[in-house]
């Protein structure tokens, strides 16, 4: 089915068309979410929200972007919103804990994340990668995830983020430089 026909059917609330879109994009959306949130259940929750949003706002979709770009944009925005919400919750939790407990044991950091798709021999390295990616600023994080993990071409990343290709290149360079800097403290050679 042509993309324009699919979109037309989606606008008519055709469930079969919605199923086709889900099957076509579920892995892209879920894997993008899992890279941002580093938590399988939360990634599923946000993936669910992304598809509900697609169903509801298909009438606002403009053909100036491809369906894939539009869906990636919704996914990135939902993930960033979720991360902000999580950060706020964490901050208020910290405050509550400060007032409630006398002890200084505050363990609210996310546990070590193992990506379910990482190759066995790379599991530890991938876990370390996600640990440092989590510290990147939002835009650098988005550029890095879409480029290095989702393997999108720079042109599509630029369309998703509504930036120029040059800006994406610069964001990627900065992201890699920051990741290298953060990785320094985990380097086994450095500990000797």
């Amino acid at each position: 089915m042509k993309e324009s026909d699919l979109i037309q059917k989606l606008r008519e609330a055709d469930q079969e068309a919605f199923n086709i879109v889900f099957e076509k994009f579920k892995l892209h959306v879920f894997n993008t979410c899992i890279s941002y949130l580093q938590h399988t259940e939360e990634a599923e929750e946000v993936t669910q929200d992304v598809f509900v949003e697609i169903y509801r706002s298909i009438n606002h979709y403009k053909a100036e972007a491809t369906l894939s770009t539009w869906i990636y944009r919704i996914s990135v925005n939902k993930c960033l919103d979720f991360l902000r919400h999580r950060k706020r919750k964490k901050r208020s939790g910290l405050l509550i804990n400060l007032f409630k407990r006398e002890s200084s044991e505050l363990q609210i950091d996310m546990p070590h994340f193992n990506h379910p798709g990482a190759i066995l021999e790379n599991k530890e390295k991938a876990a370390l990668l996600f640990k440092v990616v989590d510290k990147l600023p939002d835009q650098q994080k988005t550029a890095f995830i879409l480029s290095q993990i989702e393997d999108l071409p720079q042109k599509e990343i630029a369309a998703v983020m509504k930036l120029s290709e040059k800006a994406i290149e610069s964001l990627l360079q900065r992201a890699k430089a920051n990741l290298r800097k953060d990785l320094e403290i985990f380097n086994p050679g450095r500990r000797k």
């Binding site: 579920k26 892995l27 879920f30 894997n31 899992i34 399988t40 990634a43 599923e44 993936t47 990506h115 379910p116 798709g117 990482a118 190759i119 790379n122 390295k125 991938a126 370390l128 990668l129 290095q148 993990i149």
Partner: peptide, 10 residues
């Protein structure tokens, strides 16, 4: 390290 990784299934 994520190059060649499989896609996670929901």
């Amino acid at each position: 390290s994520m190059r060649g990784a499989k896609r996670a299934e929901p």
